[in-house]
């Protein structure tokens, strides 16, 4: 089927500001948006630029706005989008080129929440024990692929540069609620600051945007409750 892609373009070496360009592609209805983008890049205009790798929603490279919503280009099929599809870069991050945005700030915020296990010395032999129930508590937030779809869908992120954002909170949650970890208090203190969870206005855009179906807003609420009630 024939589809018109309306793609936001920006080349920092030649353009003063971003503009839209249109490309007509002939796609199989079951093709991914990424397939359509590849078709443009490979057979119409090699200058079109975006990140991509695994092609099936695991690596987190190709988050972008597809008809106004944050999605992974490799996880949306053309048949679900209609005859005109608008593709834009994620909002709130600096556009480097076309659909590719600066991710450094995003990763810096991720690193600020101590996203690694901090624990007492492990046993000399064998693994630490953790019951399936203890493991289940933080299962959802272990699924994060750091694609930034949540963070860049959040109106608070658009408004304030210093908000740590949903993805960083998700990755703090993953350790705060891990029975093996001993540094939950440190992370909660980080998220208790003015840049942390209290900026969240419970808009649910993040939950809506997550391609891994993580209940992001719920995770943020659990962190808030842990701060108020200490029920970590």
């Amino acid at each position: 089927m024939e589809v018109t892609l309306r793609i936001k373009r920006f080349n920092p070496e030649t353009d003063k500001k971003a503009h839209f360009e249109e490309y007509v592609v002939d796609v199989d209805p079951r093709d991914r948006v990424l397939d359509a983008l590849n078709q443009v890049k490979w057979y119409q205009d090699g200058t079109l630029t975006y990140r991509r790798s695994c092609g099936h929603g695991i690596c987190g490279s190709d988050a972008m706005r597809i008809n106004g919503r944050n999605r992974l280009a490799c996880k949306v099929l053309m048949q679900d989008l209609g005859k005109r599809v608008t593709l834009e870069p994620l909002m709130g991050f600096r556009i480097e080129k076309d659909l590719l945005v600066d991710m450094d700030v995003f990763f810096d915020k991720y690193k600020s929440v101590k996203p690694y296990l901090i624990a007492d010395n492990p046993p000399a032999h064998g693994e630490r024990l953790q019951s399936p129930e203890e493991r289940h508590i933080f299962d959802d937030t272990t699924k994060c692929i750091l694609c930034a779809a949540c963070t860049t869908s959040c109106p608070v992120t658009w408004m304030s540069e210093d908000f740590v954002g949903p993805a960083a909170i998700v990755n703090a949650h993953r350790f705060i609620f891990d029975s093996r970890d001993t540094a939950g208090i440190e992370r909660l203190q980080i998220l208790n600051k003015g840049t942390g969870v209290w900026r969240c206005r419970t808009v649910f855009n993040c939950t809506d945007a997550c391609p891994r179906d993580i209940k992001v807003t719920e995770a943020i609420e659990q962190v808030k409750r842990a701060l108020i009630f200490g029920d970590q």
């Binding site: 690694y116 296990l117 624990a119 492990p122 064998g126 693994e127 630490r128 024990l129 953790q130 019951s131 399936p132 203890e134 493991r135 933080f138 299962d139 272990t142 993953r174 350790f175 891990d178 093996r180 970890d181």
Partner: peptide, 19 residues
Amino acid sequence: VVGLEHMGLPFSRTPEGKI
């Protein structure tokens, strides 16, 4: 594999809490 667990890898667990 045990080293990964020590690094924090969230393995699925047996009823006894092992990997």
